[in-house]
């Protein structure tokens, strides 16, 4: 990974302001980079930046890197970091705060796409379906074709059921989604 030097142009003060104003942002400036979040995180090795590095980048206002990072999408919301942080910063909640900002900023990468497909599946069926999820996601992400043999072998072993479950009344769910959309527009 090429590391760009941090110069004044890399920093976006408005972004710092935007994040710090959110309910979880207030304590971000007090991070002392102890790393207990990253040390506790079960998936930090899969992220391009660890939670500690993400907080540091928010402190600096490195908007582009923060919003296009895989970190905010890979977080499993296990809350270990939030529970253990000695400064009372809540990295988990920070990830959740950054996701809609990334979407609103038009960040498009496979993590965003996956998130969109996932919520679509939920919206229409009210239940998660691995088969639908994978097939829809594969349509948007051509690279997934390589995973086909793996998927087939899973299917043979019954690990990828084809049946799609639906909840009885998806209208109620749709109403919830719509409310969410509305409240986001208001912001």
């Amino acid at each position: 990974m090429k590391k760009e030097p941090i110069i004044p142009e890399s920093r976006d003060p408005a972004f710092i302001e935007q994040v710090i104003k959110t309910p979880v942002g207030e304590k971000i400036p007090t991070c002392m980079q102890c790393g207990i979040c990253a040390g506790s995180c079960p998936v930090s090795q899969e992220m391009d930046y660890s939670p500690r590095e993400l907080v540091r980048m928010v402190q600096l206002g490195l908007k582009k890197e923060v919003l296009s990072s895989s970190t905010i999408w890979i977080c499993t919301t296990c809350f270990s970091c939030s529970v253990r942080c000695p400064r009372g910063i809540h990295p988990t909640e920070l990830m959740e705060t950054l996701k809609p900002i990334a979407i609103a900023e038009g960040i498009k990468n496979r993590n965003v796409k996956f998130d969109n497909v996932f919520s679509d599946v939920i919206k229409t069926n009210g239940r998660a379906s691995e088969f639908l999820l994978i097939s829809k996601y594969s349509l948007t992400e051509p690279g997934m074709i390589k995973q086909l043999p793996f998927g087939l072998s899973m299917m043979v072993k019954g690990k990828l059921p084809l049946s799609i479950q639906r909840m009885e009344n998806t209208r109620e769910l749709e109403a919830i989604f719509n409310l969410g959309e509305k409240s986001r527009e208001k912001k």
Partner: peptide
């Protein structure tokens, strides 16, 4: 003992 070596950014 589990930790992050923050100088390297590695767990």
């Amino acid at each position: 003992v589990q930790y992050e070596d923050t100088n390297l950014g590695r767990k």
